[in-house]
C-alpha cells in the first residue's frame, strides 16, 4: 500500500466521519455526539478483533449495533433540546465517552503480553484489519442508503422536519421517529467508521477523540453544506488531501490550513454545495431518462 493509498484511506475515513455528522444535521439536529460513537466503535471493534479474534466485519457490525442502540438512547432525551443547547449536550456526551476511555483499564494477556485499553496510555497493537476497500465499500453502502432514503417518502419527511419541525407533525410526519432514527443511523455510521479507523492505525488512545475531532466534524458540514450528503464528503476530501500538496510549506502548513478554511467558507458561505449547486445537480440527473 503506497503513500497515495494511505492518504486516500485517511481521506475515506474522514469522509465517513463527515457522513455520520451530516445525518443528524440533515434532519436539523445540531448533534456533536458522533465523536463519542466513533470512539466507542473504535474501542469496541479493537477489543473484539484484537482480544477475542473476531474477524473485521462481524466486529464492526457488533460495535455499530451497540452504537445504534446507544444512539436511540441518546436521541430520546435530546428531543427537547434545540440548537446550541443540543450541540452542547451532545458534546458533553462525546467528552464523557472520552473521559471514560481515559479511565478504562482492561487488559488480558495475549501471547504473554498484556493487551487491551489502558486508560490514558491507549490501546496498542490493535489488529490491522482495515483495507482501503473496506472503507470505500462501506462508504458506497452508506451513500446508496442515503440516496435511496432521499428519494423515498422518508427523504421528504426528513426535509420537512428540517425546514420546520413545528409544522411537520401537522402534515402527518412522526418527527419523533424521524429524529431518533437519524440519531440511530448517525451513531451506527460513526461506530463502524471508528472501528475501521482503529483497524487502520493499529493504535488508538482517548486523545484521538477529543475536541479537535468535534471541530473537524463541524468544519466538514459547514464547508460542505448541510443540504446534501455529498457536500460534507467533498469538504472532508478536500481538507484531508489538499494540505498534503502544500507540504512544502512545512512550519506554515497549519496556518495555510486555517486560511484555507476561512477562504473556503467566505467564498461559499452556504457551503460548497448550496441550494443553487444542489438544484443544478438535481436538474442534471433529471435530464436522464428515468429508470422504470
Amino acid at each position: 500500500m503506497g503513500y497515495a493509498t494511505t492518504i486516500l484511506s485517511l481521506a475515506g475515513l474522514n469522509v465517513l466521519f463527515a457522513l455520520s455528522v451530516y445525518i443528524t444535521f440533515a434532519i436539523g439536529q445540531f448533534s456533536l455526539a458522533q465523536v463519542g460513537f466513533w470512539a466507542l466503535g473504535a474501542y469496541g471493534t479493537a477489543m473484539l478483533t484484537t482480544l477475542w479474534g473476531w474477524p473485521l466485519w462481524p466486529a464492526l457490525l457488533a460495535s455499530g449495533g451497540v452504537c445504534a442502540l446507544l444512539g436511540i438512547a441518546l436521541g430520546y432525551p435530546c428531543l427537547r433540546l434545540r440548537g446550541f443547547y443540543l450541540a452542547l449536550a451532545t458534546l458533553g456526551f462525546s467528552e464523557t465517552v472520552r473521559v471514560l476511555f481515559q479511565n478504562l483499564e482492561y487488559q488480558i494477556p495475549l501471547k504473554g503480553v498484556p493487551s487491551g485499553p489502558s486508560g490514558v496510555l491507549g490501546f496498542r497493537n490493535v489488529a490491522v484489519t482495515t483495507g482501503i476497500w473496506d472503507i470505500f465499500g462501506f462508504m458506497l453502502v452508506l451513500v446508496i442508503l442515503l440516496v435511496w432514503l432521499n428519494h423515498s417518502r422518508i427523504g421528504l419527511a426528513v426535509a420537512a422536519t428540517r425546514e420546520d419541525d413545528v409544522v411537520a407533525p401537522f402534515m402527518g410526519i412522526n418527527i419523533v421517529f424521524a429524529k431518533v432514527a437519524a440519531f440511530m443511523l448517525a451513531a451506527m455510521a460513526a461506530g463502524i467508521g471508528g472501528g475501521l479507523y482503529a483497524g487502520f492505525t493499529s493504535y488508538i488512545s482517548p486523545d484521538d477523540f477529543g475536541f479537535h475531532m468535534t471541530l473537524l466534524g463541524i468544519l466538514f458540514v459547514a464547508i460542505g453544506g448541510t443540504r446534501t450528503f455529498y457536500g460534507p464528503m467533498l469538504a472532508a476530501a478536500i481538507l484531508t488531501v489538499l494540505p498534503e500538496f502544500f507540504r512544502f510549506l512545512a512550519e506554515y502548513r497549519l496556518i495555510f490550513y486555517g486560511a484555507l478554511v476561512v477562504v473556503l467558507m467566505t467564498l461559499r458561505p452556504r457551503g460548497l454545495i448550496d441550494e443553487r449547486v444542489d438544484a443544478a445537480v438535481r436538474r442534471w440527473f433529471a435530464r436522464k431518462p428515468r429508470e422504470a
Partner: peptide
C-alpha cells in the same frame, strides 16, 4: 525540514509510507 506530522498521529503512518 522533513515532514510535519502536526498533532495528527494518524498522519505519521501516511508520512512513514511516503
Amino acid at each position: 525540514d522533513g515532514y510535519d506530522t502536526g498533532a495528527d498521529s494518524a498522519l505519521t503512518i501516511a508520512l512513514l509510507k511516503k
